[in-house]
Design a binder for these strands. Sequence first.
DNA 1: GCAAATATTATAGTATTACTATTAATACTA
DNA 2: TAGTATTAATAGTAATACTATAATATTTGC
Lengths: 225, 225
Amino acid sequence: MKYLLSNIKININEKIYLKDPESSDLGKRIIENSIYLIDTIGFDGFTFKKLGEKIGSNESSIYRYFESKHMLLVYLTSWYWTWLEYQLVLSTNNIEDNKLKLEKAIAVLTQTTTIDSAFSHIDEVILKQIVINEYSKSYLTKEVDNENKEGYFAVYKRLVNRLKDMIVDVDVSYKYPLTLASTVIEGAMHQHFLKNHFQSITECSQGLQPTDFFKDLVFNILTHK
Amino acid sequence: MKYLLSNIKININEKIYLKDPESSDLGKRIIENSIYLIDTIGFDGFTFKKLGEKIGSNESSIYRYFESKHMLLVYLTSWYWTWLEYQLVLSTNNIEDNKLKLEKAIAVLTQTTTIDSAFSHIDEVILKQIVINEYSKSYLTKEVDNENKEGYFAVYKRLVNRLKDMIVDVDVSYKYPLTLASTVIEGAMHQHFLKNHFQSITECSQGLQPTDFFKDLVFNILTHK
DNA sequence: GCAAATATTATAGTATTACTATTAATACTA
DNA sequence: TAGTATTAATAGTAATACTATAATATTTGC
């Protein structure tokens, strides 16, 4: 899979950045190190000034790539969802059996990322942590409707729709395929968070993964129709 | 129910505030108006200075009640979950049939709040909106583990446990009662958000409520065991 | 190989935020 | 009426989230 991916570029909505970070060395350093820095100090404590210090560059240079730290978060999470969509398609592409296909899809979408792919300057494992801890901050804002119109959340919505399609393929009669799909994707992130910080309100742990719960959930809902 | 509640005081963990806002007129004005102001401008844009202007008081006076705006959010959401827990207990108390009881519980926990209760200075309907839009910001922080130890999220966790108990009463054999309970409570908030801002990834709308989806989900999971 | 264009860096500056500290005014209580 | 607690007013601080501008480096096009 690494080999397959190595010449692929993840395309991000051009409205999200001022200058494409993939187009320069500085841009790539911004992306690579913002992932580490946000993971370490959290998005709330993260500033372009601190990032500038970390990469030995200037705050003002970073502003030439992203309008604000909010837009950088939108970029990073869009990148992640695009990458995950790619993983999803690669993993389910040739599966004929609809149930097996859905099972695989749930696994890809709900498990912790362990794959370190061919995108050398991006650490997907840590990026997933950022998505778990910070993604909702990108849309829980007063600007969400405008930003949604600009297409900032398009990839995420497309991913939910892909899962929905696979749910429908398994059971056309099920009344809430979209709601189930969005619940699985968001719910998995939430369970990963609970596993790490509020263990008393989930069975999920090292031994039992969110994936196990969601597979059980979805197939019990669908097959008993 | 209004009558029943009228002499009840919602008790909040004393570590959350510096001075009990229920103990003074200014305190109550802080709570009442912070709810309206956060709903209007969002938690990110909310400041104690703006709140001071709104209530004709001084920024520094508000700081005598709450250490920071973060702690005010923790207070408001703790108040909401305590109030919801009370609603839950009142609504399910005398129901003998475990299935009916669980059904009622899911309804209370996942529906939009329409009840305007006896707590005159707190608008629960708007407070619920704040919980939907801002609650996750109270725990998606680097301080979450310390604050969790201080008991800031205790009511929320207790609520999840109450729902779990009712799930177990309906089906002891089900393997993930806690994960299901936390998924229902958090998932419902998420669906309300999607309904308002990302309608394309949920069937939920004016006609179809998150409650319908979650009742269907839970009873399909449990009864077919 | 050199000028022009572009990218990056450095410096400075601004309004706002999220507070803290201090003092003054007011209200309530013994 | 004095003492105490509460609230208000004012000032100040370090940091944030930027913007603007000039200087320097780097790339590229001919």
